[in-house]
Design a protein around this nucleic acid. Sequence first.
DNA 1: ATTCTTATCGGAAACGCTTCCATAAGAGCG
DNA 2: CGCTCTTATGGAAGCGTTTCCGATAAGAAT
Lengths: 347, 347
Amino acid sequence: MPKVTIKDVAAHAGVSVATVSAVVNDADWVTDATRARVRRAIAELGYRPNRVARSLKTKEAYAVGAIVSDITNPFFTEVIRGLSHALQETDRNLFLCDADHRFDLGDAHLDMLIEQQVDGLVIIGDSVREASLASYLRRRSHVPVVAIERDYTIDRVSCLLVDSEQGAYDATTHLVEQGFRRIALIAGPEEGAGSMTYGRATRTAGWRRALDNAGLPSSDDWVARGTFRYESGATAMRDLLSRPERPDAVFVANDMMALGAMHALHQMGLRIPDDVALIGFDDIPVSALVAPPLSTMAMPKRRLGRAAHELLRAHIEHGPGYDAVRRTFEATLQVRSSSLAPAPVIS
Amino acid sequence: MPKVTIKDVAAHAGVSVATVSAVVNDADWVTDATRARVRRAIAELGYRPNRVARSLKTKEAYAVGAIVSDITNPFFTEVIRGLSHALQETDRNLFLCDADHRFDLGDAHLDMLIEQQVDGLVIIGDSVREASLASYLRRRSHVPVVAIERDYTIDRVSCLLVDSEQGAYDATTHLVEQGFRRIALIAGPEEGAGSMTYGRATRTAGWRRALDNAGLPSSDDWVARGTFRYESGATAMRDLLSRPERPDAVFVANDMMALGAMHALHQMGLRIPDDVALIGFDDIPVSALVAPPLSTMAMPKRRLGRAAHELLRAHIEHGPGYDAVRRTFEATLQVRSSSLAPAPVIS
DNA sequence: ATTCTTATCGGAAACGCTTCCATAAGAGCG
DNA sequence: CGCTCTTATGGAAGCGTTTCCGATAAGAAT
């Protein structure tokens, strides 16, 4: 079965290729009679339009590219699911690239996606360096770009962020309200200085504001640092427990580390939340599954994905010269057992 | 900046488009001098070849499509990572589609991928019905297809499977060796009859063989069924515990359900493995993180992804008329705390 | 009956690239 | 020095679409 093209259909239906194209694209000038004839020919021959040829002509790829910093991270896959669904509804394909935390891979993928003429780009997490992206956008076609959970200060790049400071504040305040008084923090990598301005970096600020607000201490004696990965959470927890004064609660900057902390606590025979309470950030699916279920700040993951698509579509339709958008979403408190006051026993 | 095409480069370098094409594609007949000149023109203009145009001419998409039944499932994302990396090395793109357990979505994606002229297809998990795939392959271009963890009996479709029967046998035998005697099973959906022949379906067979082998009972009184999802594991566990005789160990057909079972056990105040031991299947990353760490049968996830790519590439290069391959991988026992004999206390 | 609209359709160019084939210029040869 | 043979390069067709514009036919208007 040699591929059947629009010409074959035209011949089979006894019309011109222009006409076939018209009925495929729902042009309004085709007679019902011929339309039916063409439709029948299409069905009989099993014709499917060739998107590649169409793209070449229309200069639309009917596809967007996405680069994600870590496809095995549950947080990101939820975002991708949201994006993917939205895309599917507008009949667009998704080029998905996994950078696996490697910037060189991210750059390589960026290259390919541009060559692939995608009509939009979404960057999820920290997968592409600011400099790489900026230089691409400057010297090459300026495709619309929207970033999720990554804060770029590049012209024409829209950013979808989560209000980490406020989220951290809410999480910590929740701990305060539950009666905890020695509230430690397991933060992400050292911020400030030359480091990039993640949303996450400000989680420390939110924690501090909440404690200041409650008249509780927020000195560096109460903070340990991790790398956002599971193991580093365990290490940080052990670090915290080895200090002179033991915390009775810990706010952890993301769930993966909180899970690690939980593991360390279990190992040392400490109970959660009775001995040490815990609250995380991200609300990855696993967090509800561990014992005890982990309290956390929930992010609108699917919505982030969908929003990225909507923005992209708006940018694409608007053509060059749109205004980059910068939108921040709220994280909402998700209370589970790990952060509850020990006094009134919860079943 | 209007897009710079091969013509612009040719003009700028004072050569023909054919020559530019030749140097881009590393043809061997170009003089070093002109090659250098063209290279410089390319650099100065920031030219990047248009893959769409190239694809139209060469009839190669330089991309493969993948349809995954659930992108939020950690098992699948590991497979995808393997696939993605392999693809990246051969300079091919990945169209990734999430079917979200919906066959209609899977079909829709199949449609788009075919229109997109991908040069290969990999189907991960149960995302596309056998009938849909068969009809596509019959009536349309026969692109190479390789399925992972899904057993198709379609001509020209290669399958990469895991030896579930043997894995289940090993898992159950491990339980026997640890001294457990009342070993229950939480299986997947009802098999046999008209249901499709998952690799997973044979996990029941492996469990049974191990018990028969050890002279232990393997009647239906010891088996509960789930849907491979977390909640169903909890339900099945409660079901099992409500029966006259309580099991002292359970082999669960996948980790997600095992996690659910674990949750149910915790809720009822039962200890693992002291009261009931547990072993799962898949070795998703979370399994190492829960308390107690879950024993499981590890699958070569990344290798599956890479193998899919290699097969696909072989099929593509061989052109039509290749022989479909059917390869099965071994699952290996991953012992953690959840399945250890309670007698000698483990730290 | 003639002209003018209007609705419906076909011809053909173009999108950016690859590739086959022709061609021009040297090189080698008797 | 004319000839062939090689080597480097350019011309042009064509991949499967879309789309502009012109052609045709039918009916309306005169």
